[in-house]
Design a binder for these strands. Structure first.
Length: 262
DNA sequence: GTAATTGTTCATGT
DNA sequence: CACATGAACAATTA
């Protein structure tokens, strides 16, 4: 479940489970999960090394090896990670399996193979090469306003543009727009600077709330859209208005037609 | 069988 | 160049 809050959970999970453990074996179980790197070079890069730290930028997770290289995880739609000791607990769709000296394991699991595993000698270089925008929790208000004012078209695709700011996907874009009381198809040029300013604050508020609740949808505040974001869902503010949906760039958007006017 | 799914990238058209 | 759209990638569920 990998937008920014979910990836942050994976980071915390990795930090508390696999740091500084000696890697004794690496198995690429499905080569299609690799991007810009061969199974052999990934294996030789991290075999005999330790992961000594992690860094998250948007939906990307970087694992620092003490060999000097960084492993890159992107989770696509179905990526997840799992640390386990008993081989029978290995996830079904494990694509890369790492074994540690103490005979515990770490799996990168990805059912639909939209995610990927890669590597880079420099995170900064990778980020700039791929033109990945600043993390949604790090971008300054000034930069956010400056960038968004250069854009046109509908607001939602812009919020989800990983080149402008990174970490927001379909689900959290809907939540941020609901909390901002902005219709997902509202045009950039018709939104006031005051609204953009409000939206900037709500980006951090929504994402931090999600992280505080461990990205568990059911734990989100009662005024949040996400737990109601389903067919026949109702507006969380009054339990009356039927949520509506519309397709934007091929993705389903949920919104309240009363609280989010176009 | 049809449509849908928390993502990204490419091709094409405006 | 900015934007919209559809397809592709692949697996599973309603």
């Amino acid at each position: 479940m990998p937008e920014l809050p979910e990836v942050e959970m994976y980071k915390q999970y990795i930090d508390s489970n696999i740091l500084n453990k000696l890697i004794t074996d690496v198995r690429v179980k499905h080569p299609k999960i690799l991007r810009d790197i061969s199974a052999d070079s990934l294996t030789s890069m991290i075999s005999g090394s330790k992961i000594i730290g992690t860094k998250r930028i948007g939906k990307y997770l970087f694992l620092q090896s003490d060999s000097g290289e960084w492993i890159i995880f992107h989770f696509g739609m179905t990526g997840t990670v799992k640390y386990f000791r008993d081989k029978k607990d290995e996830p079904i769709h494990t694509r890369v399996l790492i074994q540690f000296k103490n005979d515990s394991f770490f799996a990168f699991d990805c059912q639909r193979l939209f995610g990927f595993v890669s590597a880079t000698p420099s995170v900064e270089e990778y980020i700039s090469q791929k033109n990945i925008g600043p993390d949604a929790l790090v971008i300054s208000k000034q930069e956010f306003l400056k960038k968004i004012n250069k854009r046109s078209g509908k607001i939602k695709p812009v919020l989800m543009d990983q080149h402008l700011l990174s970490g927001i996907g379909n689900i959290y874009a809907d939540e941020i727009l609901f909390q901002s009381r902005i219709h997902p198809e509202h045009k950039i040029c018709d939104i006031s600077q005051h609204k953009f300013s409000l939206m900037y604050s709500l980006i951090a508020e929504v994402l931090n709330t999600a992280i505080d609740n461990k990205a568990q949808f059911t734990a989100y505040p009662s005024h949040y859209l996400i737990p109601h974001r389903m067919k026949d869902g109702v507006c969380p503010l009054n339990q009356i208005h039927q949520l509506k949906t519309t397709k934007i760039n091929g993705r389903t958007s949920y919104f309240c037609p009363i609280h989010q006017r176009k």
